[in-house]
Design a protein around this nucleic acid. Structure first.
Lengths: 335, 335
DNA sequence: GTGAAAGCGCTAACAG
DNA sequence: CTGTTAGCGCTTTCAC
C-alpha cells in the first residue's frame, strides 16, 4: 500500500541507506543526492513508517500526558498548553485520564511504559500520594517524569510548579490589610498540595497578626452545591467571618452563591483563576497558578532531558503565584 | 533491557510462534502449554513490544482524537468521555489540538495518517468547513473518521450528533408558551452548526406564531465580555426584547451579565449545558447536547467499524437534545 | 498442536 | 560519500 524507503531509493537510483541518511539529516550526503532524494520524497509524498522506525530506535517520539480528569478546566488548560509546545518540537501526545484512585494511576503508568513513551508528564497535584510514591520511583527508573504543579522529590522526576501557598499567604495579607479580621478558609482535601495551601493561609494570618480560629477552617467537597450548603450552615450557626478564601475556584463560587442567597457581600478569593472566576457573579478574584508559564517551562525541561540526558535540567522549577483581582475583591489601591 | 518473546519462549521450552499464539488468543494451543506460557509471561512481567507488533500488523491500536482546543470545556468533556470508553476497549488515544484554522486541521490530519492511527475522531462542529471538505474525504479514504456533533456526509465518515437545532426550536416554543414574544437570538458564527441553530430559532418562532424580526438576531464574538457589550448596546439603543436565546453558554452568561448590570431579569437560555451554566448567576437554563450519550455511541460505531469493516455501522446517528432547566428559565409547570 | 522461517520498514555499523 | 547487511521483536504462513 504505502510508499517505503525502498521505493524512494529505487526511484532515485541510490541505496536505502542514503535515503535514510537524508531523512535523518546526516551530513554525510552530497548536496546533489540530498536534493534528488528530497524531491522524490516530496513528489511521492512519502513518510517513513513510524512503527519500523520505532522498532529500530525504540522510540516513537511520543510523550504520555496523564491527568486525573481532562474535563476539569484546570487540567484541560494545562494539556492544551503542553500539547501545543510538544507538537512544536515534533513530539506526539498520548493522553490518559487516570481518575483519582491510585489503582487507576498505576494502571495508566504501566500502560505508558508498555507503549514505550519517551517521557511522562503528570498534570496536577493529585499525583503526589499521601503515602508512598514508590510506584512513581519505579516508573521514573524507566523513563523521565515531569510533573506540573506537583512536588515529588525522586530521581529522574522533574517538577515544575507554582508556589500557591505563598499566593494564599499574600491573599490573606491583602484581605487583612483591607480590614478583614476573620477569614473563612474553605478546602476540599488535605492532599500534599492541600496541606501546603492551608499552611499558606496560616502563614498569612500569622504575618498579619490575626488569630487562627479552627472554626474558620472548613472542609467541603470540591463541588459548588456542597460548598454552598456548607457555607449556609455556617451562616445558620452564626459563625462570624468577614472574608472567604477558597482552595479552588469552584468552591469559591459555591461560597458566593451562599452569600448572595443571604444578600451578603464579602470579599471572596478563589484559587486557579479558571474560566469560572470570570463567569462568576461577582467576578471572582483568584490566585493564578501560572499555567501559561509552567507548561512551556515543563516542555523545556523535558526537551533538555531527552536531548542531553538525565541531569541536564533542574529537578525543581518554582514560580511565584499571582493574584488576579476582580469584583469579589478589587485590587487594593496603590498609595 | 526489556523481555522479548524469545526469552519467554526459551524459558518455557517452546517456540516463539507458540508464545505469539498464546498472546493473541489463538485456539490452536493446548491448554497445558497455554498455561505454562501465561505463567511465564506473568512471572517475568513481559509485555510485547508495541513497535514490533505495529510493524507486523500495521497498527498500534491508537485512535487520533482531534479538537480545535481542549481548553474549551465542551470539547474537554467529550475527550474525557471518549478517552474512557476507548481505553476500556484497549485503544490508546493520541490527542491533537488543531486550532480553528484549516491549515492546522490539515496538518494534524496529515500527522495522524503518518502515525498510522486506526481511526480518527473529530470533536465538534468546526470540522465541517463552509467550503469544500475534500481534505476530509481524502483522509477518510485511508482511515475511518468518526465525528461527534458534526455532520459530514462522505464515504467512511460516521457522524454521531445531537439535534441542537430542534432543541433550540423547543426552547423558543417554551419561551413563547410562557408569554415571551420578542426573543433575542445571540450567535457567534454561521458555521454549518451555527446556521442550523439559527434555523432552529426561526422554526421555533414560526411554530409559535411569532414574527421574525431581524433586529433580534444578533452576532457577537464567542466571548463573555464581547457579548455583554453587544447586549448593553442593544439596551442602549432601546431595542425591545423579553427573552434571550444564545447559541453558546458563554454567550448566554455574557448576556446575563449585561442584564444584571441593568437590573433586568429576563428568561435566558444557553446551549451546551456546560459547567458555566451551573456557575452562572442566575444559574443558566441550557440546551444539553448529550455528550454523555454521543461519546459512548461514537466509540461503539468506531469499534464496529474496526471489527466488522466499513459498512458495519450507521453513517449517521442522531439524538434529540434536552433542555436542562435552571433559574434563568425554570421548567414550565406541568398542568 | 507446534516449530522453522520469511518478512514488516527502518537504522546503523561496516566496508568500500 | 555511498552501498551492503544485520538486526529490531513480532506475526504468520507453511510444514510437520
Amino acid at each position: 500500500m504505502s510508499m517505503t524507503i525502498y521505493d524512494i531509493a529505487k526511484s532515485c537510483g541510490v541505496s536505502i541507506a542514503t535515503v535514510s541518511r537524508v531523512i535523518n539529516g546526516s551530513d554525510k550526503v552530497s548536496e546533489k543526492t540530498r536534493q534528488k532524494v528530497l524531491q522524490a520524497i516530496e513528489e511521492q509524498n512519502y513518510s517513513p513508517n513510524p512503527f519500523a522506525r520505532g522498532l529500530g530506535l525504540n522510540s516513537m517520539k511520543m510523550i504520555g500526558i496523564l491527568c486525573t480528569d481532562i474535563a476539569d478546566a484546570f487540567y484541560a488548560k494545562a494539556v492544551s498548553l503542553v500539547e501545543h509546545d510538544l507538537r512544536e518540537r515534533g513530539l506526539d501526545v498520548i493522553l490518559g485520564c487516570t481518575g483519582e484512585e491510585l489503582a487507576g494511576k498505576k494502571k495508566y503508568l504501566e500502560l505508558m511504559l508498555q507503549k514505550h513513551v519517551d517521557a511522562i508528564i503528570l498534570i496536577g497535584s493529585p499525583y503526589r500520594e499521601a503515602g508512598s510514591n514508590e510506584h512513581l520511583a519505579n516508573v521514573a527508573h524507566e523513563v523521565p517524569i515531569i510533573t506540573i504543579n506537583s512536588l515529588i522529590e525522586l530521581p529522574n522526576i522533574y517538577c515544575v510548579l507554582c508556589d500557591e501557598a505563598a499566593g494564599i499567604t499574600q491573599a490573606v495579607q491583602e484581605l487583612a490589610a483591607s480590614g478583614c479580621e476573620r477569614l473563612l478558609y474553605l478546602f476540599d482535601r488535605l492532599s500534599y498540595s492541600g496541606q501546603r495551601k492551608l499552611q499558606g493561609y496560616r502563614n498569612g494570618l500569622a504575618a498579619a497578626g490575626l488569630s487562627d480560629d479552627d472554626k474558620l477552617v472548613c472542609q467541603a467537597a470540591r463541588d459548588m452545591q456542597a460548598v454552598r450548603k456548607t457555607v449556609e450552615k455556617l451562616l445558620a450557626q452564626n459563625v462570624k467571618f468577614d472574608a472567604i478564601v477558597a482552595a479552588e475556584d469552584v468552591m469559591a463560587v459555591g461560597a458566593q452563591k451562599a452569600l448572595s442567597a443571604h444578600e451578603l457581600r464579602l470579599p471572596v478569593i478563589g484559587c486557579n483563576n479558571s474560566v469560572l472566576a470570570e463567569c462568576a457573579t461577582p467576578a471572582l478574584t483568584s490566585i493564578d497558578n501560572r499555567l501559561d508559564i509552567l507548561c512551556p517551562a515543563a516542555v523545556d525541561v523535558l526537551t533538555k532531558i531527552l536531548e542531553d540526558g538525565e541531569h541536564a535540567a533542574p529537578s525543581k522549577t518554582i514560580y511565584p503565584a499571582v493574584i488576579v483581582h476582580r469584583e469579589s475583591f478589587p485590587a487594593p489601591q496603590a498609595h
